[in-house]
């Protein structure tokens, strides 16, 4: 095509504006503010209930014997691995909050956020107006992912507050650093599923698929890890589950290699999502 028929661009076109990534990130954070409080409070309330119930368990060592008598498959499915001591606050919170409920539930925060960022916005019709502005598509993916990661930290901060402060008030011996390690260990795991949802949101045009696929993978990975040490068929694939690398930070501390590895996998998924989204059509 000849461009000789057009006037020099500089006379009538606009420069690409700067600061769009920061503006998009702040915008997404603003939209997620209320969700941070709701998710943090609900999970925190669950943790609070566990703390209130703990004094009834801590002086009964026979509770461990009772749990040991359960089928190992059942114990593993509910996050009570062999060696977990339910008479300690660390073991009790791990079994009641951090092994099962918190990772499975909280992973849906980034899943829902990522599914809404592209496919959901496409379905709602908000994407057309947003991308009518001079925003590179990769920035939408990056800003949404960064904002969700920060919001997730906000939820974890609320969860930490509602875990540690009641422990102090109930005179339960829970170190603040131990509680912080437990909640922070949720971060890469949840981000991994958020990254997977972002990739599905970029590939598919339907929000339901961007929620359902990572949701199904989440449940499948949980089963594979829970039963991996008991069912021979799952043993070889167990390391492929992010739950295998999750461990029990409240009892053993955060494993830096696992933390970095799962976080890195989440970043790779987001980068793939940005690549895919930059190359595909946007529908109404």
């Amino acid at each position: 095509m000849s461009t000789g028929q057009t006037e020099p661009r500089t006379r009538r076109t606009r420069e690409k504006p700067r600061g769009t990534l920061a503006a998009l990130t702040l915008h997404t954070l603003r939209l997620q503010r209320r969700s941070v409080l709701i998710w943090g409070s609900v999970l925190g309330a669950f943790s609070l209930l566990a703390l209130v119930a703990f004094p009834a368990f801590q002086d009964q060592p026979q509770i461990n014997e009772l749990v040991e008598s359960y089928p190992p498959e059942l114990r593993e499915l509910f996050g009570i691995g062999s060696g977990t001591d339910l008479t300690t606050i660390e073991g009790f919170l791990q079994s009641q909050v951090f092994a099962f409920i918190a990772p499975l539930a909280l992973s849906f925060f980034p899943i829902l956020a990522a599914a809404g960022a592209i496919a959901g916005a496409e379905e709602r019709g908000t994407l057309d107006v947003l991308l009518g502005n001079p925003v590179p598509r990769w920035q939408l993916v990056a800003a949404s992912s960064a904002a969700t990661a920060v919001s997730l930290l906000g939820i974890l901060a609320v969860l930490w507050l509602l875990t540690w402060v009641p422990a102090v008030l109930l005179d339960i011996d829970l170190a603040p650093g131990t509680a912080a390690g437990a909640v922070l260990n949720l971060w890469p795991l949840c981000l991994f599923f958020g990254g997977l949802a972002m990739l599905c949101s970029a590939v598919f045009h339907r929000r339901v698929l961007a929620v359902a696929i990572p949701g199904a993978v989440l449940v499948a990975m949980y089963f594979v890890d829970s039963l991996g040490s008991l069912v021979e068929a799952f043993e070889s694939v167990q390391p492929l589950s992010v739950f295998y690398h999750y461990g029990s930070a409240i009892e053993d501390g955060i494993d830096p290699a696992s933390f970095a590895g799962v976080s890195g996998a989440a970043v790779v998924l987001v980068a793939l999502a940005a690549l895919v989204f930059s190359r595909r059509d946007i529908y109404t």
């Binding site: 420069e15 019709g125 908000t126 107006v129 991308l131 925003v135």
Partner: peptide, 13 residues
């Protein structure tokens, strides 16, 4: 898009 103002036919804010 830096130089265009766009109103889509169906949009949501």
């Amino acid at each position: 898009r830096a130089s265009v103002g766009n109103l889509p036919t169906e949009f949501t804010l």
